[in-house]
């Protein structure tokens, strides 16, 4: 069972929720797909770390063969190529590894070369297998790292929690593609509603079942809650705004491992999510 946790921007409690869900489950897999700023490992502090580099294929040019026809330059949708003073310049960080230019060069002057763009790490923290993807700074896209993370963790019998990158770019789509259920984290402000709507639209596009966790809840009216009510979205849990949780979080402690109160809260959230997933699969098979 794969549960993806998403939010429109960072800092809405996405990591808090996915880390604590993974920690409260009996045995689980946690996958940090926020490859530009992975921080789940700061909470889990996993041991026995194994590392694997991730590389992509990018073009390299043999200047003796290149005729300067510029077909590759015109073709590249990402503008990763320029032809200046009888020389092809390749902007490796801009290249998206589509391979098009290599296929198309009439002089076969372009060939593939491997370039390391980051790495994946696997370690353990008590009951949780912790997976972290790390994209080197300046690299164009973490998609390959996310693919690697998800392919390395395909045991469907284990409860798997995917901490997605913020926003709604294609890297987020990659992260939720194979998820059975999406948990959306939302803050109780108008801006929070805007962000929530953004990811809500994305998840709907993928026709994934979803529910919302309202984070930082206060006594007053919650625009995010109102949004869920209007759109008929299931509210899975309300996490109150309190100091204890804030302190645990800023000390990079996992709340459910420190406090019975939060263990109970996230256990019940997990139970709700599992019930929703089963409900969805049941209604799926009826269709």
């Amino acid at each position: 069972m794969r549960i993806a946790v998403l939010s429109g921007k960072g800092g809405t409690g996405k990591t808090l929720i996915s880390v604590n869900l993974a920690a409260v489950a009996k045995t689980s897999i946690y996958i940090d797909c926020d490859v530009e700023e992975p921080n789940g490992h700061l909470f889990f502090k996993p041991g026995n770390i194994q590392e694997e580099e991730v590389s992509v294929l990018i073009p390299k040019v043999d200047e003796k063969l290149c005729s300067g026809c510029r077909k590759c330059v015109d073709f590249c949708k990402f503008n990763a190529l320029a032809y200046i003073k009888d020389k092809l310049i390749i902007f490796e960080e801009v290249c998206h590894s589509c391979g098009g230019c290599i296929m198309l060069c009439p002089k076969k002057a372009l060939t593939e070369k491997e370039k390391v763009i980051g790495k994946v790490q696997k370690g353990t923290s008590d009951n949780v297998t912790v997976n972290t993807g790390i994209l080197n700074t300046g690299e164009a896209s973490g998609i390959h790292i996310i693919k690697k993370l998800l392919n390395n963790n395909t045991e469907i019998d284990k409860q798997t929690f995917i901490d997605c990158p913020p926003g709604s770019a294609c890297i987020v789509m990659e992260s939720i593609k194979d998820a059975d259920y999406c948990v959306l984290a939302a803050e109780p402000t108008m801006f929070g509603v805007h962000n929530l709507n953004m990811v809500y639209e994305l998840v709907r596009l993928f026709k994934k079942p979803l529910g919302v966790v309202l984070n930082k809840c206060l006594e007053e009216e919650n625009p995010a809650e109102k949004f869920c009510f209007e759109k008929n979205i299931k509210v899975l849990s309300r996490i109150p705004f309190d100091n204890e949780l804030g302190i645990l979080n800023s000390n990079a402690e996992i709340a459910v491992r420190k406090s019975e109160k939060y263990r109970a809260m996230f256990s019940s959230l997990l139970a709700t999510v599992i019930k929703e997933v089963h409900h969805e699969t049941a209604s799926d098979s009826q269709r």
């Binding site: 330059v73 949708k77 990402f78 503008n79 990763a80 190529l81 320029a82 200046i84 902007f91 164009a140």
Partner: peptide
Amino acid sequence: AAVSTGGAGIKAAQMIV
């Protein structure tokens, strides 16, 4: 390059050259 998705600066620079 004004409408391209990425690398607009590179393409525009190529035009200047």
